[in-house]
Design a protein around this nucleic acid. Structure first.
Length: 420
DNA sequence: TCTGGGGTCCTAGGACCC
DNA sequence: TCTGGGGTCCTAGGACCC
């Protein structure tokens, strides 16, 4: 059996741990640049605030209903996530960290499953302050559905089990097809046109028909919903096949110098992530864009690829390559809104193919990078970086409603006062 | 004025090989 | 008139996830 544990309204819950006065009050968390809503408390959902709603469009409602608003504090959420996952690892052993707020658990051979699941959920909430829901079922896809019920209906008291055929049928019939994990907009529209409304209807389709229309992915889904597990638990973090850092700017960028700083900084971050998984990259892509929402301004979307003769993880080479690519596509006269760097053709350390005419002292560069990473590791920051990266992203982001880094910065530690 | 960021997998089709 | 058969690798595009 699989368990899926999922933190409720995660980003909002993180803020509430340190601001208990917000419990019961409508609260939302915004994306980068305070652009749109990416997390909502139940009270905010009840007000009709949509996921992804642009912030400026709901200003009035926010004021009228006294909604509490936060900028994205990824440092805080990342740290809270780490705490949740570490408790889960201690209790279960076999876990797959699926996203910042979700994990699959291997619950095979646990005797009193329901009580155990309840204990895990309560323990996480007790130790971190984050409310969670747990779904338990014979496949990951069914565990997702069970989790959904646990979250939606209070009577489940955090835990929903799909452990009999009767419960499975009932759950499938109550699940609209578009809510199934792995069915997005396109497939749900297509299926509905064929009269498929629920997950149950989907399981009644002919297997070969599903395979033909929705590839192996659809076929796997079909089997998982029957209670036949196809997706296994991936307990080891896999190396990334591509690494991407991209950001929208808080304010338009109109100069090559400004754009170079952003690209250099993104490339530097990519290189650091690449070294963290001990990999090397043979190619990167730089992209720059104007705002697609500004029809009144001239638009320009462009990207360029830079290939390396020898796969590298050296920040100087990667940043240099990215800037070279940028120069080949940059044009004056536009208000740029977004820039990004994507590293591709990633190979592990053991599979690096050398280049016959390579003139670079790779040993020396590796030592330098290791030293930089070590220094930055101590402070959990990027204090040491290339000068071309400038002051980095912080100056270009808009984050007007940022909460303190309660758990990662001494200056932001809460002070508890004892009253006499 | 103002609309996020980072990933994965699969398939079809083109280029190329013998 | 008629134009093989079997493969690999790469990329673009589609679909999906949180």
């Amino acid at each position: 059996m699989y368990g899926l544990i999922d933190c409720n309204n995660f980003f909002v819950s993180c803020e509430r741990v340190f601001r208990p006065d917000l419990n019961g009050k409508p609260t939302v968390v915004l994306s980068n640049n305070d652009g749109c809503v990416i997390a909502r408390s139940n009270e905010a959902k009840a007000l009709g605030i949509r996921m992804g709603a642009p912030f400026y469009q709901i200003q009035e409602l926010i004021k009228r209903a006294h909604v509490n608003v936060f900028s994205s504090n990824q440092t805080l959420y990342g740290d809270m996530s780490r705490r949740v996952m570490s408790i889960l690892s201690q209790l279960v052993g076999d876990i797959e960290v699926y996203s910042i707020d979700e994990a699959f658990l291997n619950l095979t051979s646990i005797p009193d499953l329901e009580n155990f699941a309840r204990y895990v959920a309560e323990k996480v909430t007790h130790d971190t302050g984050i409310p969670v829901s747990m779904g338990v079922a014979p496949s990951k896809t069914l565990a997702k559905i069970a989790n959904h019920f646990a979250k939606k209906y209070k009577k489940y008291n955090q835990v929903c089990m799909i452990d009999t055929e009767e419960k499975r049928f009932k759950a499938l019939m109550l699940t609209p097809i578009e809510e199934v994990w792995g069915i997005g907009r396109r497939f749900s529209d297509k299926l509905k046109r064929q009269g498929i409304q629920t997950a149950y209807d989907f399981t009644r389709l002919d297997r070969h028909f599903v395979r033909k229309k929705m590839t192996v992915i659809g076929e796997q889904l079909w089997q998982e919903l029957q209670g036949l597990p196809c997706k296994t638990l991936e307990t080891e973090a896999q190396d990334k096949k591509q690494i991407c850092v991209s950001r929208s700017f808080g304010y338009p960028v109109t100069t090559l110098k400004g754009m170079s700083e952003a690209i250099a900084s993104h490339a530097g971050r990519c290189a650091k992530k690449l070294r963290q998984q001990n990999s090397y990259a043979a190619s990167l892509l730089v992209l720059i864009q104007t705002s697609r929402f500004r029809n009144d301004l001239p638009q320009y979307f462009c990207n360029a690829v830079k290939a390396f003769d020898t796969p590298t993880s050296d920040s100087m080479e990667i940043v240099g390559g990215a800037l070279e690519a940028l120069k080949s596509i940059y044009k004056d006269g536009y208000q740029y809104k977004r820039a990004g760097v994507i590293i591709t053709q990633i190979v592990p350390e053991t599979a690096v193919q050398g280049f016959l005419f390579d003139a670079k002292n790779r040993l020396k560069s590796a030592k330098l990078m290791a030293t930089i990473d070590q220094i930055n590791g101590i402070y959990q920051s990027r204090q040491v970086r290339l000068a071309v990266e400038g002051v980095g992203l912080q100056g270009k982001l808009r984050q007007e409603l940022l909460s303190p880094n309660y758990t990662t910065n001494f200056k932001d530690l809460l002070i508890v006062k004892c009253s006499k």
